Amino acid sequence: MTDSPGTGRCDCGAAAGPLGECVDYYYAILAEEQTDPQMYRWHTTVVCAYLLQHPARAHEKYLDTQFRLLQLYLDKGLDALLRVAAHQVARNRHGVRSGYDMAPLAEYDPLPSGSPGPFRAGFSGMPFSDGSFVTDGHAAYGRRIQTIAEATVESWRTRTA
């Protein structure tokens, strides 16, 4: 994460939170997901939103698909996203080498060119207490992840060229 010297802000524009910068929150979320299957349901959304908010940490060739996945999630919900993700995993297990199946994502906008930001919601603003992101329940955690996903798509759509 590139921190602007002396500002306490990461490259996405967010101020550092009690755990540190967005990257610290991201890795803490990924670690907690490993012990909480209910929390793990938002894994794809977390990864896509984080990488789209921090594109310097991402592989550029995947950002378009990640942007479309967030749009699918916001349009059709978590269960639809999980079905598409399971479909992709099944394709990989069966040795399909033709790449990612973009058919479920064809109706969504491609990633705009340019740079996103600022984001009205990000990872360093996530509440964390008693060593967890879900102390107030999984539904509340899901709503926070959805807000971050909405802010991510919104920012990319209004990006600067």
Rank of each mutant, 00 (worst) to 15 (best):
L81P: 12
W42R: 10
T158Y: 05
P118T: 04
A56N: 08
Q53G: 11
R57F: 10
L111G: 04
C12W: 02
T2E: 09
A86E: 11
H43G: 07
D24E: 10
S132K: 05
C22N: 09
F119Y: 07
G95P: 11
Y100N: 10
P5T: 06
Q34N: 06
G142K: 00
V96D: 12
A86Y: 08
H54Y: 00
H43Q: 14
E107F: 12
A31Q: 15
A161N: 14
R143H: 10
Y100K: 01
S124G: 13
Q38I: 13
D64C: 10
Y50P: 00
Y26V: 08
L72S: 13
Q53P: 04
P5A: 15
Q88P: 07
N92C: 02
C22M: 10
G6C: 14
E33F: 09
R159H: 02
Q66T: 01
R143K: 11
V96Q: 09
K61D: 04
F133A: 05
R83M: 12
A106D: 09
L78E: 13
P5G: 14
R143S: 15
D130A: 11
T160A: 08
D101G: 00
A86F: 00
G99D: 08
G6Y: 02
R120G: 13
G17D: 03
P104L: 14
T160P: 07
V153Q: 03
G122C: 07
A56E: 15
Q34V: 11
A106S: 08
T45W: 03
L69G: 01
I148V: 04
S155N: 02
T65P: 01
V46A: 03
V134R: 15
G142V: 03
P112L: 00
Q88R: 09
